[in-house]
Amino acid sequence: MKRLAAPDRKVCVACGVCMKACPKNAISIYKGCYALVEEATCVGCGLCAKVCPAGCIVIHERSEAK
């Protein structure tokens, strides 16, 4: 897994659209505040970024995301 989804917590509206779209169930909404990606599970497929209505998810190369 070379890529990782990284939601921008400052922009995220916590709507949960990404959570529903994630095929690996790697996303949860942290205490109603923002989307939280479980790094070990995320495969960086980009489906969440595609559906995010706020456009706040970017797909990073794993080395960059750290």
């Binding site: 709507c15 205490k31 109603g32 505040c33 559906v51 995010c52 209505p53």
Partner: peptide, 24 residues
């Protein structure tokens, strides 16, 4: 725009997120 774009500025969503942030 994208489906559920309403959710990004839905007043109820904004209000509940503010409440959650205060609580967290």
């Amino acid at each position: 725009f994208k489906p559920r774009t309403w959710c990004s500025f839905c007043p109820m969503g904004t209000m509940t997120q503010i409440l959650c942030k205060i609580k967290a």
